[in-house]
Design a protein around this nucleic acid. Structure first.
Length: 439
RNA sequence: GGCCCCAUCGUCUAGAGGCCUAGGACAUCAGAUUCUCAAUCUGGGUACACGGGUUCGAAUCCCGUUGGGGCCGCCA
């Protein structure tokens, strides 16, 4: 039988990074097995659902390249894929349980007559887990499956849909492990064999606490939302790759690896059983690696939202290898697009405080005025010639020059930077610097 | 509190009884290189939570302790 897995988020707020990892693992398993990846929207909590949130989920999955085979905007034979549109399906199953004497009403809600026996949960990752009933459950293990307002609850709709949609493997967060006995009991009540379960460990904050989108600590709350990484200029390839490595490993010391290699190697039993903490610094490193390695075309495409409209390919190409985050883009390129860029005081003090600075910049301007053609290959010998004539180290010209034309001590290769800046701007800025740094 | 899951460098991990005086990566420190920064290269420090077993031999198996996480809703 062909594998069918599903990602079943609720459209309430931002997309949680842990949910994203769950979606990723489902997608990987589907692609690894040649199975089907279903996206199902669990929007039974009418009060909390928003269209905006639905968009966030769909956009987030697409951003990461996690395409679904059945679901919203895609269709499929098992639809509809919104639980809000499946009321009749649930109604039928609730009636079935009532007819079998396995559901009854109390206080206006419908309750499921839970088995009084401990339920063994076979889990592909955790192994066999038997969860005995706790004290309260021993007294009354039954639980609500339809609220008094008539809406069925998560446990019921989740099981009914997994059943109706022929889901073969339920890959979800470990926070559901304790509930699984309820789900298995429900499957049995319907006379259906439960799917295989694989509960994946949680992703935690750097301090080991649970990642929550509503954490009172704003910095931690930011960490929990996928949107944060999009806004900060992480690239999807890097986020996806990093997430693959949280709870899974190719076991051959590779870390940066193409997604199709992960798809090939990925399997459920090899998923780790322990929680992982989210390490932004490693993700940031990986992001820089991906940015440096990607094509200029891809870079231009991903950089567009961060350029503020200044997307000259020559400029962006120059700083591509410098970046760790796309969000840093403006601070690397501002002087290409404006003449009133700021001068870093530390850089000025370090490179432009020598008394000869002014004279050197002026002479450099004169020397560059004669360079033809204006390109890196001709600028370099011109500068070196002048250094020889003045009897100074090239650095004594290079550093002041860099500060004069960009305001910074750090940037791309000087000669390529000058080439892209163009003769007019470079000469003007050098002469302006000669005035500015006159001591 | 009850029940469940888990436990290797600061972090992510490799390790399925001898290959481990524990390997890789990020981070960090030192050095090299460079026109700056980044990158790159070289090197350093840092871990098997603790206590009992089992075994000729344990990071690897068992038990306990401690610690972390999860679940105990008419949320999902």
């Amino acid at each position: 039988m062909s594998v069918r897995v599903r990602f079943a988020p609720s459209p309430t707020g931002f997309l949680h990074i842990g949910s994203v990892r769950t979606a990723l693992f489902n997608w990987l398993y589907a692609r690894h097995t040649g199975g089907t990846f279903v996206l199902r929207i669990e929007d039974t909590d009418v009060a909390r659902n928003t269209d905006q949130s639905l968009r966030t989920i769909l956009d987030g999955l697409r951003w990461l390249g996690l395409d679904w085979d059945e679901g919203p905007e895609k269709g499929g034979m098992y639809g509809p894929y919104f639980q809000s549109q499946r009321a009749d399906v649930y109604q039928r199953h609730i009636q079935e349980l009532k007819d079998k004497g396995l559901a009854y009403e109390r206080d206006g809600a419908v309750r499921f007559r839970m088995t009084r026996q401990p339920v063994e949960v076979p889990d592909l990752i955790a192994g066999r887990v038997t969860r005995p009933l706790n004290e309260a459950e021993t007294l009354d293990p039954d639980f609500v499956i339809v609220r008094s307002d008539g809406n069925p609850v998560f446990h019921l709709v989740n099981v009914v849909d997994d059943m109706e949609m022929n889901i073969t493997h339920v890959i979800r967060g470990e926070d559901h492990l304790s509930n699984t006995s309820k789900h298995i009991a429900l499957f049995r009540a319907f006379g259906v064999e439960p799917p295989q379960y694989a509960h994946i460990p949680m992703i935690l904050n750097p301090d080991g606490t649970k990642m929550s989108k509503s954490d009172p600590d704003a910095a931690k709350a930011r960490l929990a939302s996928l949107q944060t990484y999009v806004e900060d200029g992480f690239v999807p390839e890097a986020v996806r790759n990093y997430l693959c490595l949280l709870g899974w490993s190719p076991k051959d010391n590779r870390e940066i690896m193409p997604i199709h290699d992960v798809v090939e190697l990925f399997d459920l039993p090899q998923i780790l059983r322990n929680n992982a903490r989210f390490d932004v610094s490693k993700l940031t490193w990986m992001n820089g690696e991906y940015i440096r390695a990607m094509s200029l075309e891809r870079f231009l495409e991903l950089a567009r939202p961060f350029t503020g409209g200044h997307d000259d390919p020559k400029v962006l190409g120059l700083v591509k290898e410098k970046l760790k985050l796309l969000r840093e883009l403006p601070s690397w390129t501002d002087y290409f697009f404006r003449d009133d860029y700021a001068f870093d005081p530390v850089a000025v003090k370090k490179s432009c405080s020598a008394p000869q600075t002014s004279e050197r910049l002026a002479k450099l301007a004169d020397k560059f005025a004669a360079v033809n053609p204006w390109d890196a290959a001709h600028l370099e010998p011109a500068l070196k010639t002048l250094a020889g004539e003045l009897g100074v180290k090239t650095g004594d010209l290079i550093h002041p020059c860099r500060v004069a034309v960009s305001g910074k001590s750090a940037g791309p290769s000087l000669y390529h930077m000058l080439e892209v800046l163009g003769r007019d701007r470079v000469l003007a800025r050098l002469r302006r610097g000669a005035e500015k740094f006159r001591s």
